[in-house]
Computed example of a mutant assay.
Amino acid sequence: MRLAVDIFPCEDGHAQERRLFAQVLETVETKQLWIADRNMCTLDFLSGILQRKASFAIREHQNLPWTAIKELKSCGQVEGGELWEQPIEIQRGEQSKP
């Protein structure tokens, strides 16, 4: 089993966690899988993970602008319910990120 190995302390207890994303992205390595909740579902963070040739399974934030490339597909059951997968394209200005 692998455990969390990095922490990102911040002296400001009221700081928005997204303010620390640049520090977090510095630790992303090729072929890693990052799993997170929707608070980490921002265009900059997702793009940063992809730029480092890593992958993510991050719960979608309702403000993320995306378009489906293929239909939603069931991938099986997990403890909390059914797991689904869908390739998407994220629109960012003039650029698209599949």
Score class of each variant (00 low, 15 high):
Thr30Trp: 04
Arg2Leu: 12
Phe21His: 13
Glu94Asp: 15
Lys53His: 13
Gln23Ser: 15
Cys41Gln: 02
Gln62Glu: 08
Leu20His: 10
Gly48Phe: 05
Gly76His: 06
Leu64His: 02
Ala22Tyr: 03
Cys10Trp: 10
Lys70Leu: 10
Phe45Gln: 00
Arg19Gln: 13
Arg92Val: 14
Phe21Ile: 05
Lys31Pro: 02
Ser96Ile: 15
Ala4Asn: 12
Thr42Pro: 06
Ala4Arg: 11
Gly80Met: 02
Ala4His: 08
Ser74Gly: 09
Glu71Lys: 10
Cys41Glu: 04
Ala68Ser: 10
Leu72Val: 10
Arg59Val: 05
Gln95Asn: 08
Arg2Gln: 14
Asn63Tyr: 03
Phe8Val: 04
Asp12Leu: 00
Ser55Gln: 06
Leu33Trp: 11
Glu79Trp: 06
Gln86Gly: 05
Phe21Trp: 10
Gln95Ser: 13
Ala22Lys: 11
Cys41Pro: 03
Ala22Arg: 08
Ile49Cys: 02
Asn39Pro: 00
Ala57Thr: 01
Val28Thr: 02
Gly93Leu: 05
Ile90Met: 14
Leu25His: 02
Ala15Gln: 10
Val5His: 11
Val24Trp: 07
Phe56Lys: 00
His14Gly: 09
Asn63Ser: 13
His61Gln: 08
Gly81Leu: 06
Glu60Leu: 12
Trp34Thr: 12
Ala57Asp: 01
Gly81Trp: 06
Thr30Val: 13
Gln51Thr: 12
Phe45Thr: 00
Lys70Gly: 11
Thr27Gly: 01
Leu46Cys: 11
Ala36Met: 08
Glu79Val: 12
Ala57Trp: 08
Arg59Ala: 07
Thr42Glu: 02
Asp37Thr: 04
Ile7Ala: 14
Leu64Gly: 01
Gly48Ala: 05
Leu33Gly: 05
Ala22Met: 00
Leu33Ala: 05
Gly13Pro: 05
Arg38Asp: 00
Gln91Trp: 05
Lys97Val: 15
Trp34Phe: 09
Phe56Ile: 03
Leu46Pro: 01
Asp37His: 01
Leu43Val: 14
Phe45Tyr: 03
Ala54Val: 02
Arg2His: 14
Asp6Val: 07
Trp66His: 07
Asp6Tyr: 15
His14Leu: 13
Arg92Tyr: 14
Pro9His: 07
Asp12Gly: 04
Lys70His: 15
Glu79Pro: 05
Thr27Ser: 07
Ala36Glu: 04
Ser55His: 14
Val5Leu: 13
Leu46Ala: 01
Gly81Tyr: 04
Lys73Leu: 08
Thr27Trp: 03
Gln77Cys: 09
Gln16Met: 11
Lys73Gln: 15
Met1Val: 14
Gly80Phe: 09
Gln23Ala: 13
